[in-house]
Nucleic acid binder design. Structure first.
Length: 265
DNA sequence: ATACCTGTTTCCCG
DNA sequence: CCGGGAAACAGGTA
């Protein structure tokens, strides 16, 4: 379930492995997550290396190993990280396994939309250091939203929110949550949004990003009670604010859920 | 059997 | 060159 806060939580699953050496590496020869690199290189570079730190930025993860090795990891649609004891036997969906003396670190991804990257160097790779500002950063301010909306004036606002160039870590459920709170219809074109409504939108982007980190990001469970999240997954849900039946429809290429009346075109 | 899916990249169009 | 949208990727689940 990998959006901003779920990625942060997933990343922490490997924390018990920090400071420990990797004895052995398993790579699944059939997994597409290796499409940008060679499995042989992953095995040779990570075998014997010590995991020294981990970090996330939006949906991206970066693990640092001794010997100036770096492993970039993206969970895609169905990726997940796990930790098991050292007698763990891999299953079909496991893409990468780092075997340590006391535990096994697992990257599992049945649908294989995730991806791995390798980098060697004193500094983190440029694709990481050049990522757009995080929504959680105090420097993430409304000008970013204003500029994006100006540039993409014809796009439905829902599609803009999902654009990782501007909103690192925003995913489908977060975007629906934000628009529901800001009372904006997901199909609304950016050009049709007033600066007053834009302000509300920015406030809710920050609120949902921070709120998700403080709930999902901490314990890995669901967001707080009352969030749209709990009722948006399937047809038949009701708006937590107005108790009116919700609408689900594809907008901007993704299933969107909104509350008619509250969010009008 | 069929439809659906918490993401990203690539390709095509204007 | 750009912005915008659809298709493709793949397999588990309902």
């Amino acid at each position: 379930m990998p959006e901003l806060a779920e990625v942060a939580y997933a990343c922490r699953q490997w924390n018990p492995g920090i400071g420990k050496f990797v004895k052995e590496v398993y790579t699944n020869p059939n997994s597409r997550v290796f499409r940008d690199l060679s499995r042989e290189q992953v095995m040779s570079e990570l075998s014997g290396a010590k995991l020294t730190s981990s970090a996330t930025h939006g949906k991206q993860m970066l693990f640092k190993f001794s010997g100036n090795r770096w492993l970039g990891l993206h969970l895609g649609m169905t990726g997940s990280l796990h930790i098991e004891n050292s007698s763990y036997k891999h299953c079909k969906q496991d893409a990468l396994i780092l075997l340590q003396s006391k535990q096994t670190l697992i990257f599992r991804d049945p649908r294989q939309f995730g991806r791995l990257r390798l980098h060697t160097g004193k500094e983190a790779p440029s694709w990481w250091s050049e990522l757009p500002l995080s929504m959680l950063d105090s420097e993430f301010q409304s000008e970013i939203l204003d500029d994006a909306m100006k540039r993409h004036s014809k796009r439905p606002v829902k599609a803009l929110l999902l654009d990782q160039r501007y909103f690192q870590g925003m995913g489908n459920w977060m975007a629906d949550e934000v628009l529901w709170r800001a009372h904006i219809h997901p199909a609304q074109r950016c050009a049709g949004i007033s600066s007053a409504v834009r302000k509300k939108l920015f406030t809710q982007i920050k609120f949902v990003a921070n709120g998700a980190m403080n709930s999902v990001g901490k314990h890995g469970g669901d967001p707080p009670k009352g969030w749209l999240f709990h009722v948006r997954w399937k047809n038949g849900g009701f708006c937590p604010k107005t108790n009116v039946p919700l609408i689900r429809e594809e907008i901007g290429g993704r299933t969107s859920c909104w509350s008619p009346g509250l969010q009008k075109l």
